[in-house]
Design a protein around this nucleic acid. Structure first.
Lengths: 121, 121
DNA sequence: GCGCTTAACTTGCATTTTGCAAGTTAAGTT
DNA sequence: AACTTAACTTGCAAAATGCAAGTTAAGCGC
C-alpha cells in the first residue's frame, strides 16, 4: 500500500519509472503541470477553469504535493496566497518532455477510441 | 467523475495529454507496460514477481483495460490463458518513449527525495 | 481417463482515495 | 468598518484499491 504523508512518499522500488508513477500516477497531477507549461503561471481559480473541471479539494491536495516535491512553487514567496500564483520550478519545467510524449502517443493511438481528440502541437 | 465500464472511457476533454491520463493515470498500468518492454512477453504470474508486488485483482483489472484499449494482446490468440502470455501491440510499443522520458525525469529530479533510485538506461 | 497441482483469475470486505457541495477564513476592496 | 470573494477545508457518499482467501479449469503424470 502506498501511503502518502507530508513529504513522505512510499517508494515501491528503486526503478525510476516506478518512482515517477509513485508521485505522478494519478489523473490530475500532470494536468496541473500541463496548465503551468501552457500559461507560465496560474492562480488557484485559474486551475479550476480548465476544461477538465478539477474539484477544489483535489486541486488543493495536488498543489501541496507538487510543491512539497519541488515541482511547482509560488511566484512570489513573500506574498499571501490571495495575491500570488503558481509556477513551475526547474524540475517541473523538465516534465515538458514527458507531457509531449504522452500527448503525441495518445493523439496517434487513441483516435479510434476518442474521435474528438485534438492535436496540441 | 470518471466511470470506467468495459470499453467506455469517460474522456474529460479533447486534450491528448488529458486523454492519456484518463486511461493510464494510475500507479500500475504503465508499470505493466514497462515489464513488457523489458521482457517482451509476460505471463500473469511473472507480472506478480516484479519488485512492486501488484495485487492480483488489480493486475487482472489492468490487463483487461490495456487489452481493451489495444495496448497489449495475448501472444497466441488461439491458446488458453494457462498456456499463453501477454505482449505489447504496436500502440503499446510506442509507449516506450513516454516511459523513457518518465524514467529520465525522475532519475534526474527525485534523487534527493529517493536516494536509492537507480538509472535503468 | 482420473486425480492432483496450480495458474489465472474472482470474491468479500476493509481501507483509502476521489469528488460533490457547502462552509470557513482572511485578504483585498470600497 | 463592512462587504466581497479567492483560497482553501470539511463532511459525507461513492468509487477505487488492496489483502487474503477462494474458485475454476487447464495441464500433467500415471
Amino acid at each position: 500500500m502506498t501511503r502518502k504523508t507530508s513529504r513522505s512518499i512510499e517508494w515501491r522500488s528503486e526503478c525510476p519509472i516506478s518512482s515517477a508513477l509513485d508521485i505522478l500516477g494519478d489523473k490530475w497531477s500532470l494536468l496541473l503541470v500541463r496548465d503551468l507549461i501552457q500559461h507560465g503561471t496560474r492562480t488557484y481559480s485559474e486551475f479550476t477553469e480548465a476544461k477538465e473541471k478539477i474539484s477544489t479539494n483535489i486541486l488543493a491536495d495536488r498543489l501541496k504535493l507538487l510543491s512539497d516535491l519541488g515541482i511547482i512553487e509560488r511566484v512570489a514567496a513573500d506574498r499571501s496566497a490571495r495575491n500570488n500564483a503558481y509556477q513551475l520550478t526547474k524540475a517541473g519545467l523538465e516534465l515538458r518532455e514527458v507531457l509531449e510524449a504522452l500527448g503525441r502517443w495518445s493523439y496517434e493511438n487513441m483516435r479510434e477510441s476518442h474521435p474528438e481528440i485534438v492535436s496540441i502541437d
